[in-house]
């Protein structure tokens, strides 16, 4: 049975999808700006952060209005709650992307410390995780979301490797310190993006199954 206010939920869902797509685009562009030393692209990423902030506010308002007027139950209740949480995670993803873009601007003024291989690889993983978490939202495929939660560890591992590598650069050549620190923060940002993707995946499993897997080690270790 279709209800006259079902359109409200459709808007809510599509805003969340739009927010996910926008956050993914921001991360991709920020990392591309870093690798290609493209200051113009970095500036566009920084300017576009407003889009995510505004979407988060819009989603919150829609959720509050829906809860207030419709008192949702069961799947609808979970959708509204999960939508609010996921939009908060996506807004934070946007903040991390903006941070990466700002560092990309500063790094573009100097020669690269080393060829950027691990950072784009890590960023690709984080973006894939976001994409799969969103796919779970669109298609209800919780297997994909579970895989996201497990992949979080791989990103952590690369982050730690990079940390060690950059530390040895700094010890050997103090002239690299400022650039190495920027890269460390970027690596940390990407690791945080993967954490947010993991949160979103957990939220999507809750949405689909009504099951809270946040602190379930059997899920994380597979």
């Amino acid at each position: 049975m279709k209800r006259f206010f079902d359109a409200e939920l459709e808007t809510f869902r599509s805003d969340l999808v739009l927010m996910g797509e926008t956050a993914i685009r921001q991360v991709r562009d920020a990392v591309k700006a870093l690798v290609e030393a493209d200051v113009g692209l970095a500036d566009r990423v920084i300017a576009a952060d407003d889009e995510l902030d505004n979407l988060e506010i819009k989603i919150d308002n829609e959720a509050i209005r829906y809860m207030n007027l419709r008192a949702p139950i069961a799947t609808e209740l979970r959708l509204v709650i999960v939508g609010m949480k996921a939009s908060h995670d996506l807004e934070r993803v946007g903040d991390e992307a903006t941070g990466i873009a700002k560092r990309a601007v500063r790094l573009a003024a100097e020669p690269p410390l080393k060829p950027y291989v691990d950072l784009p690889r890590m960023a690709n993983m984080a973006v894939e995780m976001l994409r799969d978490a969103l796919d779970c939202f669109l298609k209800g495929d919780t297997d994909k979301a579970l895989a996201v939660i497990r992949r979080d560890k791989e990103v952590d591992t690369i982050n730690k490797q990079l940390y060690r590598e950059l530390t040895s650069f700094m010890i050997e050549r103090p002239g690299t310190i400022s650039r190495a620190i920027e890269l460390m923060f970027i690596s940390k940002s990407i690791e945080r993006i993967a954490d947010h993707a993991t949160n979103i995946a957990e939220e999507m499993i809750y949405l689909a199954k009504g099951k809270d897997v946040r602190h379930d080690d059997s899920v994380k270790n597979g």
Binding site: M1, A74, E76, L77, K211
Partner: peptide, 13 residues
């Protein structure tokens, strides 16, 4: 929050 049956879900929603 999480009914097992689709008819229940449809009704409560």
């Amino acid at each position: 929050q999480n009914p097992a049956n689709a008819q229940t879900e449809a009704y409560v929603s």
